[in-house]
Design a protein around this nucleic acid. Structure first.
Lengths: 221, 221
DNA sequence: TAGATTGTTAATCGATTAACAATC
DNA sequence: TAGATTGTTAATCGATTAACAATC
């Protein structure tokens, strides 16, 4: 039986924990490469990342690793556990639609593979882009999209098209079999309930940043 | 006295509410432009955005708008209230450092102005980029950065450089007077306590997406 | 008037934080 | 042994959700 299942049912994980795990992972990787430390305590991780140690402990506990009192966790093992837990050992393929600046940035970024995502191709309706390679990924004409999704059984679509095309492309994706859309547009997509939308909303982040800055600058006075 | 203050102290706003406000805003804008509806109820907003109406009501209440029982809120006024509340009427200037694909995408995107952010220039150390314009924004050599931050009193820096330069540039920014950094790298930045970091962590989003997809696909079986 | 919706107070739920025995 | 740290249960805190009187 798989580690994070009980009778085939996946244990529920709080989203905040899920979001912190990659942060620990990046930290641990760096630690392992640069310092070759064998053990690390939750206290130490917490200090370095400005997260309270109890929370680090709770988050780590989810991987079901066993630590050593007084010493902490084996770094190598902890890295492995997080990889296993997040399913980063088997990479999932994805298509990206909309090869503008942002789309190109995501296509060229090779780091996603480390996080279990392999963007295997880009799609665009601009003939001047079709046939080219960006970050070693081929760009196809968007009219090939449905067929290729179906044939290759792709489940994840990345949406970086201009806003007016977002819903249209999402519809095509869903119809062809995509089950999760990483949405970088600011369009609220309508999709069936059995499709996941992960909306990367920069406006939302910006609002949080601005409000914090407002409070900060006010406190300077 | 300003609307969101009490004796000069800014009311605390839950971050989730802060992140939902721009979503309502985008929805309302579209509604107003396309359908010219005068009143909208929390129920209706909730239905359209898949958020439960009570939450919409609570979020909206923070703008201190007064709605009309049976009718709802005046769309025009609600839009205005959200703009006021989020400080979107006076735009804040920002510099962007790292004019690669991602940096170019952000520079070219004109939508941030609507959310109170004006990226006025880009910086890079690549001479082939310096002096050019991207999205009507000049690209300067990064060695001009500290001076220009200081002279223009810029408070927000956007960081889109390759990982190895992230901390170095952040240090320069902070030393010159930047008080908030929008961090698009996957580097955990060390900055003084009186500087805000907003970390756009795509790995974290990706993890959430993958886990949800995993659960979804499992439930198909 | 009847009914939908607001505004506000109370209940619930879930994540964070605290406490503490067990352990190396 | 003494002390730091784990693992786990309990307490706290804050956001979400429910309930309901007031109102148009």
């Amino acid at each position: 039986m798989d580690k994070n299942e009980n009778n085939g049912k996946i244990k529920f994980i709080p989203e905040p924990t899920l979001r912190r795990l990659p942060v620990y992972y990046q930290y641990l990787k760096k630690l392992h490469n640069e310092k070759r430390i064998e053990f690390i305590s939750a206290t130490q991780i917490g200090n370095d990342l400005n997260i309270i140690p109890i929370q680090v402990k709770k988050d780590i506990a989810i991987t079901e690793i066993t630590g050593k009192p007084k010493l902490g966790y084996n770094v190598r093992e902890l890295i492995k556990r997080i990889e296993d837990f997040l399913g980063w050992n088997n990479v999932t393929d994805a298509f990206l639609v909309g090869v503008g600046n942002l789309g190109s940035a995501l296509l060229s970024y090779n780091g996603f593979k480390e996080y279990g995502l392999n963007i295997i191709a880009g799609f665009d309706d601009d003939e001047s882009k079709v046939g080219k390679e960006i970050g070693k990924k081929m760009v196809f004409h968007v009219n090939k999209l449905p067929d290729m999704i179906q044939r290759m059984g792709i489940k994840i679509g990345i949406l970086t098209v201009p806003a007016p095309y977002a819903q249209e492309i999402a519809d095509i994706m869903v119809k062809a079999g995509i089950r999760a859309i990483w949405n970088f547009t600011h369009v609220k997509l309508n999709v069936p309930k059995n499709v996941i939308i992960q909306h990367e909303n920069l406006a939302a982040s910006l609002v949080v940043l601005s409000k914090k800055l407002e409070i900060l600058l006010k406190s300077d006075e």
